[in-house]
Simulated scan of single mutants.
Amino acid sequence: MNGFLKLLARNKKVAVGLAIVLTYIMIAVMAPLLTSHEPNKRVARPHQAPSAEHVMGTTRMGRDVYHLFMHGTKTSLAVGLGAGCMIVILGTALGVSAGYFGGKVDEIISLITNIALVIPQLPLLLVLAAFIGEASPLTIAIIIGCTSWAWGARVTRSQTLTLRNKEFIRASELACEPAWRIIFVEILPNLSSIIGLNFLGSIIYTIITEATLEFLGLGDPLAVSWGTMLYNAQNSSAMTVGAWWEVLVPCLAIAILGMGLALLNFGIDEIANPRLRTFSGMKKFNKRIKQLRQKQAIAGEPTPQAKTEVAYDG
């Protein structure tokens, strides 16, 4: 555990990504304390530029963009985390069941997974959201969670099939341990890195998809989220009238959070994958060797390569 924490501390991608994600979580948790009124309340003249009084400007309806951003962060993060948990739970449960039990169970789950993978996700989400009409953020999270688990199930199944033939699994089966204990004690801990990567990727996908659906007008216009901020900015022709701040704030919020989650994802992947860790170490080693050779060349000392060539000529 200490070694894993040291690797986390050394990895700059994890450090930066974790800092960004924790900042957004703090904003979401403390939004009621950091704002003075309801986000949909009219507090100023329409389309006021950012100023000391309204640091992020106002919308066409006279709403403070800062308050919309703070409360929208809470909604968008809640949707991302909720749908991410659903995707991970469904994908992990089905993938592990298919990989461990095999036989008919594997055939049925693989058939359902293949069908879910073939169906294009975004058009399906558009149809479902349009059928429901003005879907709330909770409804959007449930729709995304129930339709986006297939990729995680496929990856988890493949890794479970690899673990299924390991010696410690065979030993547990020979000791007549129940299947539930083998899955929860022996298999799932070895899938923790894959489950974590699937969870982070699902959050990114959910937040972007929710913003897309709401931007297209398929969400609840009264809900406060980054997607509805973009939808209202589009309806008010914010860019046309020069109210760039109304579009920039939610776009930057989504981009920066996506970057933080992606960095966290890549960093954890490097820590969990020894090959990537070795490749990173080799780059640092080669860089160090290059620096030493440059110092030797400046000092007039023969490099190891030159010494080898002289010895060979001799």
Rank of each mutant, 00 (worst) to 15 (best):
Q48D: 10
V96W: 04
A49M: 15
L81N: 03
A44Y: 06
D106R: 15
T59C: 07
L68Y: 01
G102Q: 07
I87S: 01
Y100L: 14
F69I: 03
S51V: 06
M61L: 14
H47K: 11
S51N: 11
H67T: 06
S51L: 05
M26S: 15
H37L: 00
A44L: 13
L77A: 02
M70C: 08
H71N: 13
M70F: 10
M26E: 07
I108S: 06
G84H: 12
A98D: 07
L33P: 03
R45F: 03
P32E: 05
L68R: 15
V65T: 08
E53T: 12
F101C: 12
M30E: 09
I25C: 09
P32K: 11
K104F: 09
T59Y: 13
K41R: 12
K74M: 12
G84E: 09
A52H: 10
G84Q: 12
V55G: 00
G62W: 01
G99N: 05
S76I: 00
M70V: 08
P46D: 12
G62C: 05
T59W: 13
P39Q: 09
P46V: 05
L77C: 02
T92K: 09
M30H: 06
G80I: 01
S97H: 10
C85S: 04
A78N: 09
K104H: 07
A83Y: 14
M56P: 01
G82T: 15
P46Y: 03
P32F: 03
G99K: 02
G103K: 15
T58P: 04
P39K: 13
G62E: 01
A49I: 10
S36H: 13
V29Q: 12
M86A: 13
A31I: 08
M30F: 11
E38W: 07
D106S: 15
C85D: 00
L68D: 09
I25Y: 01
M30T: 11
G103Y: 07
I108C: 09
T73R: 06
G62P: 04
T75G: 10
A83D: 07
M86C: 10
K74G: 11
